[in-house]
């Protein structure tokens, strides 16, 4: 019960910020994919940099554990390509589609219905995928610092600096 309440509160805060950042809209999502307006990239990278520092601090303090997903090259690449294709058509992400609906962009309803169908189809296809695509290029649970053989605190500042340079460049270009 407490877990469910945490989920709701976290969602309310996150949805509030997504809307205030104006990243829920189709025009913003397609704007990013068409490299016309990179508001979403600014939002996402800012979020990632803050979360990266905070979560690794928690891990170092023994207050949290990382939840690392397996690197499955076949599934990651094929799934990523399909996701990109679908995202370009839909113009909303799974999480932002409900937020877009909440701010009145009700074409998102059809996207949400489509996503429910897509998830159902995946469940049907899972037994087949499990013995094929999901076995291709399985490198197990792997993080970038592990792959490079360095401390996370080498990767984090470099990543953050890269983000700041990108932000400055985007602002100069008016993107």
């Amino acid at each position: 019960m407490k877990t469910l309440l945490y989920g709701l509160i976290t969602g309310v805060l996150f949805g509030f910020l997504l809307q205030k950042g104006r990243v829920l809209r189709y025009d913003k999502q397609l704007g990013a994919l068409r490299l016309l307006d990179l508001t979403i990239v600014k939002f996402m990278l800012s979020s990632v940099v803050v979360a990266m520092i905070g979560v690794y601090l928690l891990v170092d303090l023994g207050l949290a554990k990382l939840s690392v997903k397996s690197l499955l090259l076949g599934a990651n690449i094929l799934g990523g390509l399909l996701f990109g294709l679908g995202w370009g058509l839909l113009g909303y992400c799974p999480g932002t589609s409900v937020g877009a609906l909440a701010e009145g962009r009700w074409d998102a309803v059809f996207g949400i219905l489509g996503m429910l169908v897509g998830a159902g189809l995946y469940a049907e296809a899972f037994p087949y995928l499990k013995t094929t695509v999901l076995t291709w290029g399985n490198y197990g649970k792997l993080t970038l610092p592990q792959l490079l053989g360095v401390s996370p605190w080498v990767v984090i500042p470099l990543f953050a600096a890269g983000a700041v340079f990108l932000f400055r460049w985007l602002e100069k270009r008016g993107l």
């Binding site: 094929l78 399909l82 909303y92 996207g111 219905l113 489509g114 169908v117 998830a119 189809l121 995946y122």
Partner: peptide, 19 residues
């Protein structure tokens, strides 16, 4: 139609990539 088809394809891909 584009939203529905896009949603179907995107979610299948997201599940496959474990996103």
């Amino acid at each position: 139609l584009a939203a529905f088809v896009g949603g179907t394809v995107a979610m299948f891909g997201a599940r496959l990539a474990d996103g």
